[in-house]
Computed example of a mutant assay.
Amino acid sequence: MSEIVFKVGDKVEWMHCSSNGNSMRFSSREGKIEILNPCYAQVKMRNGRKCWVHISDLTLPDQKNGVTKLFEVMTGGEVGGAK
């Protein structure tokens, strides 16, 4: 498996998980890399907020993100329209 090399200015996606009581919510987030260090990237989201995300959690927009992979595991196959 080849490692993806990210650079400042790349548009990226990642999966965000939040929980409330007995339920969990998985959502896909996207943004643009502003700062990179060896383990984390500071990403500016579409709403203007910034957050630090671990490099291993990031994917490029044309790749399967964590939410797509999760649904593939749950359904046992390809999710329609995913690359």
Rank of each mutant, 00 (worst) to 15 (best):
M1A: 11
M1D: 10
M1C: 15
E3G: 09
E3L: 15
E3S: 13
I4Y: 05
V5H: 14
V5C: 10
F6V: 08
F6L: 07
K7L: 02
V8A: 07
G9R: 09
G9Y: 10
D10G: 03
D10H: 05
D10Y: 05
K11T: 10
K11H: 12
V12Y: 02
V12D: 00
V12F: 03
V12S: 00
E13R: 10
E13V: 14
W14Q: 01
W14R: 00
W14N: 00
M15P: 00
M15C: 04
M15H: 01
M15F: 04
M15R: 02
M15S: 02
C17P: 01
C17Q: 15
C17I: 13
S18I: 09
G21R: 14
G21S: 08
S23F: 15
S23T: 11
F26V: 02
F26E: 02
S27A: 14
S27E: 15
S28Q: 10
S28G: 06
E30M: 14
E30W: 11
G31S: 13
G31L: 07
G31C: 05
G31W: 08
G31F: 10
K32N: 06
I33T: 04
E34G: 12
E34S: 07
E34L: 14
I35P: 03
I35K: 08
L36G: 01
L36R: 00
N37W: 12
P38C: 02
Y40S: 04
Y40M: 09
Y40E: 09
A41Q: 02
A41P: 02
Q42N: 05
Q42I: 08
V43H: 01
K44N: 03
M45T: 14
M45R: 12
M45I: 06
M45S: 06
R46C: 09
N47F: 13
N47C: 13
N47G: 06
N47V: 14
N47E: 10
G48Y: 11
G48D: 03
G48H: 11
G48Q: 06
R49D: 05
K50H: 05
K50Q: 02
C51E: 12
W52G: 01
W52C: 00
V53P: 00
V53K: 03
V53C: 02
H54Q: 15
I55R: 05
S56L: 09
S56M: 11
D57G: 05
D57M: 10
L58M: 08
L58S: 04
L58V: 05
T59I: 08
T59A: 13
L60S: 04
P61N: 08
P61G: 07
P61F: 06
D62G: 12
D62N: 15
Q63D: 11
Q63V: 04
Q63S: 09
Q63K: 11
K64V: 14
K64F: 13
N65Q: 08
N65L: 03
G66E: 03
G66S: 04
V67Y: 11
T68R: 09
T68C: 11
T68L: 03
T68Y: 11
K69G: 13
K69F: 14
L70H: 03
F71Q: 04
F71P: 00
F71E: 00
E72Y: 11
E72Q: 13
V73S: 07
V73F: 08
M74Q: 06
M74Y: 07
M74K: 12
T75R: 08
T75V: 01
T75G: 01
G76N: 09
G76S: 07
G76T: 12
V79C: 03
V79M: 13
V79N: 04
V79W: 10
G80V: 15
G81R: 10
A82T: 06
A82C: 05
K83C: 10
K83P: 07
